[in-house]
Amino acid sequence: MRRFFVRHKFLMKLCAVALLLAIFCGVFLIMGWGSLLHRVGNTVIYPFQWVFSKVGDGIGGFVMHFEDVDRLQEKIDALELENESLRAELSDAEILYDEQAWLYRYLSMKEEHIDYQMCAARVISASGEGSGGFETLLTLNKGSAHGIQKGMPVVSTSGLVGMVVEVGINQCYVQTILKPTSSVGALSPESSDKGLLEGDFAYLYQGQAVLKYLPEDAEIKEGDTVMTSGNGSVYPYGIPIGKVAEVSVNPHSRTKEAIVTPFHDFSDTKEVMILTSYIRYTEGDHTPESEGGA
């Protein structure tokens, strides 16, 4: 042991100095100056720490940038997914909103004609060859499986559209009032003049139909409204059709003709209602005649 102390005299001196330092610190601590040496030491080391802190910030920021790229990419992916689902939800909501608005408009019609039993249908396709963009034949997404039958009238919120001419299981075909083969019993409530509204090639390009066979002394004039008369076996009484755009006299048949601009826009039909059942009335007689609808 003595040999060890003699051999490592320097270590003993060093330990003594270190112990003295510790004792001094202990004394300072008792005197209330415990942090004095630390403060002195920190003052000396602070500039070094400051420099490396700045360097560390730079490196840390640089490393963080690359770490963030992955994290941000993950976040972007997650947000894109969320955005996609939200878009789908929004699209659904928009469709529902449109449908709701559409149904609301029909509700007012339903309130007006409580006897109407209606079936909402969506236009799958529309054709209007040689019609200048106006629809003459519509394909709807409802068919015999939904109770649709041939001859049922088809209306929109703005007015008469046409009638069902062909029925499949899940689809049906509607001939619009613009089609030259179509004819609808119509009248003008202002003048009480009756006629037959027919599609005409001459006016198809303007999206108009012609109210024919009006009496020569008919008082119908430009701007008068035209609606279904209820005569015939297809259309109920009082469905608005359009407005008179022009009145002329046919010199061959000695009858008047009125060119009618339909209320319904036949250039962009999306949703319609098929009247599946209604009570048949005739002009001036509001007692039900019979139940109509094909």
Binding site: Q49, V51, F52, S53, G56, G60, V63
Partner: peptide, 16 residues
């Protein structure tokens, strides 16, 4: 020692 102390407590402590 001061340099290494600075590196130890700042630079290396900040980098994971």
């Amino acid at each position: 020692l001061c340099l290494l102390g600075g590196i130890q407590t700042t630079l290396l402590a900040k980098i994971p």
